[in-house]
Design a protein around this nucleic acid. Structure first.
Length: 566
RNA sequence: UGCCCGGUGGUGUAGCGGUAGCACUAAGGACUUUGAAUCCUUCGACCCAGGUUCGAAUCCUGGCCGGGCAGCCA
């Protein structure tokens, strides 16, 4: 049984496959139904990929984008636009199927009237408090409303007066007449319509009453002919109600199927806490590169391909799960490794002088843009007497296994020359190293030694005179804890990674980076993947965000050495 | 002590009656003009207890653990 079953699909695709095979459906229609009251995040990406993915895979299938806009008091058009942008960016397309539950308000109202006429719905004039009290609890049944047995005529009259705006908010509701003693709370005469005076972003002031989710959602699905209505597990208890409305009305029976939400380690995903982050100023807004929102991830430098790959690898099940952010990062690196052009940049510069290199000379050396993709070509980088290298790449007293530059040691400058450290210059007061004096071997141009001698290390560098000083923002995971417990954390600070952002005001970049446009992605060799910030970069002075580091075996080695020493 | 769902290595997932596969992670090694990438190796799991069966991760029962549900939110 050790052969990979290539036909293995998630349980939802298995159902779809079966429905096609049995002829239950000859066309598959799904929908992605965001409420326009927040931003999409990585958790939503699973659902986007699932719904649009299935819509795309099935023969002549498709997926509607339907905004679930039944609560005007907390929704807005700005969210509609942001959500559309994010889905498009992720790589999905809804054709002309940009739909709104509000498109069906009249139809939904007519359905409600039908239920009133058939004695399955009634207007309840209890206060919200009374309704809540009579609903019962998890362990006790509810009690019937005193208005439950109003005549159909009275109900019709009252409901139409609700619609014409005669009543105050919260004074009346329309409820389905089901069973106040049901063990499923959703079936205890759920509210179908309430009175809301907020203007609606799509329908303006046309309606004073709005349908509740349970009533609107399934019927909207049915109206659109949705065959498989996919949602997360918390709606499972709503399924009997979903089916009840469709059955009572005898309309197209869309099928609701639930799947488990995907959480991500080392971050926060709940709408409430994301909002807290933004409002408290811990992050810079919904698109702060630390945010797990799609807009934040886009700004950080994520590619849509990597996110889709991640969603596919995590898969779909009915279990609750927390995916490891390391998997997301892996998907990103894998994608960027083959696509991002390489550049050199020194984050923490240490000046070196090549003492045997002529004072005013400059020469240009060819560097591969992407060793993984020769078609990416090459570029020329200037070399001169004074250079910057990474401070971390030199140690005066190197430990075992440190292969980089050290006194008397020869290493290679990438695409440059072999250099040897001859002298270390320090600040006499602080004894901080201020400069290294090195010699180079002109015979090693391009990094090859004609005599065949080897060096242990190759490091990156930038010509001091030609370097582009630039701001670089080093982002890291939002939370230090893999599974931050924010339910009990009063202070967000207790779960946030204090080093989620370190700003380097003056990193030294290779000059070719001067023209990097917003959103352009590069690998800074030996450091990581970086993306020109789309908000704060100016023409000629890009600001770079570190999207993700390279895997760093040396850093890990150091860490474990430190640990074993202490 | 209500109803519903779930429980396979650290994480995610496959397996659907013939005793566990894949990916990520981790550890080691090869290679290397990125301590990257690539390649190879290794560690590592069926929640528990009964039952059915020649045979159970798969079916049944009970328990334990985790999640969801008491908005005129979605």
């Amino acid at each position: 049984m050790n052969n990979q079953d290539k036909n293995s699909v998630d349980f939802i695709r298995a159902i779809v496959r079966e429905d096609l095979a049995t002829g239950k459906h000859d066309q598959i229609i799904t929908r992605f139904p965001p409420e326009p009251n927040g931003h999409l995040h990585i958790g939503h990406a699973t659902s986007v990929c699932l719904n649009f993915g299935i819509g795309k895979e099935a023969a002549n299938g498709y997926c509607n984008l339907r905004f679930d806009d039944t609560n005007p008091s907390r929704e807005s058009n700005a969210f509609v636009e942001a959500i559309k942008r994010d889905i498009r960016w992720l790589g999905f397309d809804w054709g002309d199927k940009e739909l709104y539950a509000s498109d069906y308000f009249q139809q939904l109202y007519d359905y409600a009237v039908k239920l009133v006429i058939s004695g399955k719905a009634y207007v309840d004039s209890q206060s919200p408090d009374e309704i809540r009290e009579s609903r019962g609890t998890l362990t006790e049944p509810g009690k019937n409303s005193p208005y439950r047995d109003r005549s159909i005529e009275d109900n019709l009259d009252l409901f139409s007066r609700m619609k014409s705006g005669e009543f105050e908010e919260a004074s009346q509701v329309l409820r389905a007449k089901i069973d106040m003693s049901s063990p499923n709370l959703n079936l205890r005469d759920p509210v179908m319509y309430r009175i809301l005076r907020s203007p609606h972003h799509q329908t303006g002031n046309e309606w004073p009453i709005y349908p509740m989710y349970d009533f609107a959602h399934g019927l909207s699905d049915s109206i659109e002919g949705i065959t498989h209505s996919l949602c997360t597990m918390e709606y499972e208890d709503h399924r009997p109600l979903y089916d009840w409305f469709l059955n009572q009305l005898g309309v197209f029976p869309s099928r609701q199927i639930e799947f488990g939400k995907v959480l991500l380690s080392h971050t926060i995903l709940s709408k409430r806490n994301l909002l807290r982050l933004v409002e408290s100023g811990h992050v810079d807004g919904w698109d702060d590169p630390r945010m797990p929102t799609l807009s934040g991830m886009r700004r950080l430098g994520f590619t849509p391909e990597s996110i889709r790959d991640f969603c596919g690898r995590v898969g779909i099940t009915r279990r609750s799960n927390i995916a490891d952010i390391a998997l997301l990062e892996h998907c990103l690196r894998e994608d960027l490794n083959k696509r991002a052009e390489r550049r050199m940049a020194v984050l923490n510069p240490l000046k070196i002088t090549i003492t045997n290199y002529p004072e005013n000379e400059v020469e240009y050396l060819a560097a591969l843009n992407n060793p993984e993709d020769i078609s990416a070509g090459s570029r020329e980088i200037p070399f001169s007497r004074e250079l910057y290298i990474e401070r971390e790449d030199f140690m005066e007293d190197p430990p075992r296994k440190f292969f980089r530059l050290a006194p008397g040691r020869e290493i290679r400058l990438r695409y440059g020359f072999f250099i040897k450290c001859e002298n270390v210059i320090k600040d006499p007061d602080t004894s901080e190293i201020t400069e290294l004096q090195c010699t180079y071997d002109p015979e090693t141009r391009g990094g090859f030694a004609p005599d065949g001698r080897k060096v242990r290390a190759t490091i990156h560098w930038v010509s001091a005179r030609h370097a582009l000083p630039s701001e670089v923002r080093l982002y890291d995971r939002l939370c230090s804890d893999p599974n931050p417990d924010i339910s009990s954390a009063q202070e967000l600070e207790t779960v946030l990674n204090p080093h989620s952002l370190d700003v380097i005001k003056e990193a030294m970049l290779e000059p070719s980076l001067k023209t990097a446009g917003p959103g352009e992605k590069y690998q800074f060799e030996r450091l990581g993947y970086f993306c020109a910030d789309s908000e704060d970069s100016k023409p000629g002075t890009p600001i770079f965000n570190r999207t993700v580091t390279l895997r760093d075996t040396w850093a890990r080695l150091q860490k474990s050495q430190k640990k074993s020493r202490s």
